[in-house]
Write a protein that binds this DNA or RNA. Structure first.
Ligand SMILES: [Mn+2]
Ligand SMILES: [Mn+2]
Ligand SMILES: [Zn+2]
Ligand SMILES: [Zn+2]
Lengths: 153, 153
DNA sequence: TCCCTTATTGGTAATGGTTTTCATTACTAA
DNA sequence: TTAGTAATGAAAACCATTACCAATAAGGGA
């Protein structure tokens, strides 16, 4: 998958009646190159460097579209602005959850314990959707606290 | 605990060098009487009914304080506005997690599977804090999807 | 290749939840 | 009382996100 994404994106867009545009290409380019969790503004600034005409509105609009197409994922970490990263299947990272530092606001990915977490989540989701007749589409697990650098030891 | 909270709140405030004021009393009063997850504005409107001079600013300021004092808990459900509920130990509800309907935005509490979840969380937290040297203070588990009324069957 | 249709863009203004500012009021301890 | 400080409320500021709208450009057909 890696490296052949350009054509893949193209196909995804066309297949849904959308067009492959420069802004979209650049946004996905930025997201492919980073390991970080980027805000709309982060992405705007990064794209702006080699495509100075980009508008912030366009960033927001396309992030929304990309989320809908499930090419990227949106996260709210309670920091006032949303952050985005490439969906698991297009990312260098594996499926993971997050640690959030309440002091420096950094986000840490972890993939450990995933087998266990996934099993646990499956079970819980099954139990819940049955008992509450609730059709679950997504789960959210985050741990908040203080990172290595920010804790008073 | 139930019913004797008024004095308890008083004690909490005094003990921290704060004062027990009418707005604080009313805010806690509203939160004690509901089973819902209230936004700042919800609380403002409720308090406003029998204390019309209350200012929205005062609501926000006190919610922040109450969160710091751990009398209430703040949640972000990705709905643009924060919601609050009484902390477990002061609430009629037991420790619980949330189901969030993406259509009607309602929040559902569930306490089932808690023993299992709590055990799972303890384990995970222990593993994570060791491996990442991350001091965990709080976890967040939410399931998103469509409630009974909102799913297309 | 050139057109035509319409998806897409970018600038600007608006929105809406939350925070700041500041002058006024209410407690509390001496 | 009085001084010192906590707390309040109104209004303005903040700031991420959205709505609006005229201008542009992608891509299918001729
Ligand atoms: Mn991540
Ligand atoms: Mn709840
Ligand atoms: Zn940190
Ligand atoms: Zn619903």
């Amino acid at each position: 998958m890696r490296g052949r994404n350009q054509q893949h994106w193209q196909g995804q867009f066309m297949g849904c009646g959308y067009r492959m545009t420069k802004p979209r290409e650049e946004i996905l380019g930025v997201m492919e190159k980073t390991m970080d969790h980027l805000s709309a503004e982060d992405i705007y600034l990064a794209v702006h460097k080699f495509y100075p005409n980009i508008g912030l509105t366009t960033i927001y609009r396309n992030l929304e579209l990309l989320v809908k197409m499930e090419l990227i994922v949106k996260f709210e970490f309670g920091q006032g602005k949303a952050k985005y990263e490439l969906a698991d299947q297009y990312s260098k990272k594996e499926h993971h959850h997050h640690l959030v530092c309440k002091k420096c606001s950094r986000i840490f990915d972890y993939s450990d314990f995933m087998e266990k977490e996934v099993r646990f989540l499956k079970d819980t989701e099954k139990g819940l959707s049955k008992k509450y007749d609730f059709q679950i589409t997504k789960h959210l697990i985050q741990f908040y606290g203080y990172c290595n650098k920010c804790q008073k030891k």
